[in-house]
């Protein structure tokens, strides 16, 4: 019974928490853009404009819902749902802290420690594209279809380097479980470097982060919704809360991706050189590890904003070229080097 209760609390808790981060993230995005662009940004709704996402949400909820006459209704309605649900589900296997001991019961800070967590992420992550393509197709709008097509091509192309980059991590740590990988990143290697994925797989990290930006449809890979080319891409015809789901799903995606990056490459909840877990009590360590994890996540979230307001956008053929001619050979090379290294050292 307790297990059930804990599971439910964890699911609901992390759901609310990710939701909250995504909401704050919309605020961070706008204020961050304003900061980078020398302007104040939204500052009327609540202190520092913090309630701006709330206002947007209320407005989107109470706006008239329009289903275009020529749209394919079922697909049109399913699009945003299929986009935002996988975004939430993917977080299930991403850890958000070490563990916490409550009443002699050890609770790991992860919704579910699936031993094939990687495969789950890859599978669920590639579900999101269905939301995009269905939305693009169902809207019966040429811009939307173009956006959907772009998104599909992009997702298919970047799934491959993403998976190959992850394979490098699997080689190094020898497990598919995200929690095991996180645990393995404690301590140092070669005497001075933290035992983090980024130091063991530097090339893999670069490949992963580039592919992740592409998967998240963020600048410079935001072609599916390239504003100046195809208006708003796949969500051109969406208004009211359906649009909200798309916009919101994007931020949830970002949280998930940042979580994965931190869990795999940035030592999860570990501080470099210091093992705080040894000094702190079980409960406080649980909280501290949670905080450390989300500090790291917020750094990567900020990076998404930072990059977005700095770089121009790629062109369609360049994205494809980068994916197939740049990333995939590099990823294969990375795997080869990793395998060779492991073979020689073991």
């Amino acid at each position: 019974m307790d297990d059930w209760l804990i599971a439910i609390i964890k699911v609901v808790g992390i759901w609310v928490w990710v939701l909250l981060i995504a909401v704050v993230m919309t605020w961070v995005e706008r204020r961050g853009a304003a900061l980078i662009q020398d302007r104040p940004g939204p500052n009327r709704a609540g202190p520092f404009g913090l309630f701006q996402p709330l206002a947007d949400g209320i407005k989107l909820f109470t706006k008239e819902e329009i289903i275009p006459t020529n749209a394919q209704k079922l697909l049109y309605i399913m699009g945003p749902l299929l986009f935002s649900l996988p975004a939430f589900s993917a977080y299930a296997v991403v850890p958000f802290g070490d563990k916490i001991i409550l009443g002699g019961k050890e609770i790991i800070l992860q919704v579910s420690d699936v031993n094939v967590g990687f495969l789950y992420i890859l599978a669920i992550g590639s579900m999101g594209v269905y939301g995009v393509i269905l939305g693009g197709w169902g809207s019966n709008n040429k811009y939307s279809i173009l956006g959907g097509l772009r998104s599909t091509a992009q997702m298919v192309s970047y799934e491959v380097p993403l998976g190959l980059a992850l394979l490098g991590i699997v080689f190094v740590y020898g497990t598919f479980s995200l929690r095991d990988i996180s645990l393995a990143q404690q301590g140092t290697f070669l005497g001075f470097l933290p035992n983090w994925g980024i130091f063991k797989q530097p090339l893999g990290f670069i490949l992963f982060i580039v592919a992740a930006y592409a998967e998240a449809n963020r600048v410079p890979f935001d072609l599916p919704e390239a504003e100046s080319e195809i208006v708003s891409g796949y969500h051109t015809e969406y208004g009211s809360m359906r649009l909200g789901l798309y916009l919101f799903g994007e931020y949830v995606n970002l949280v998930t991706i940042s979580g994965i990056i931190v869990a795999l490459y940035f030592g999860s909840w570990h501080m470099p050189y210091i093992d705080l877990g040894a000094y702190l009590g079980p409960i406080s360590w649980g909280i501290v590890s949670f905080c450390i994890f989300f500090l790291k996540v917020s750094f990567f979230l900020w990076m998404f904003v930072w990059v977005r307001w700095t770089l121009p956008r790629f062109r369609y053929d360049q994205v494809m070229g980068l994916g197939w001619r740049g990333l995939i050979p590099l990823a294969l090379f990375n795997i080869f080097i990793t395998a060779l290294f492991i073979q020689l050292t073991v």
């Binding site: 853009a33 662009q37 020398d38 302007r39 410079p220 100046s228 700095t310 770089l311 121009p312 956008r313």
Partner: peptide, 16 residues
């Protein structure tokens, strides 16, 4: 030109 190519920020710097 920057905005149309996806780089928003230079636009703001220039407009100031």
């Amino acid at each position: 030109l920057g905005v149309d190519l996806g780089a928003f920020t230079p636009f703001f710097y220039l407009i100031i």
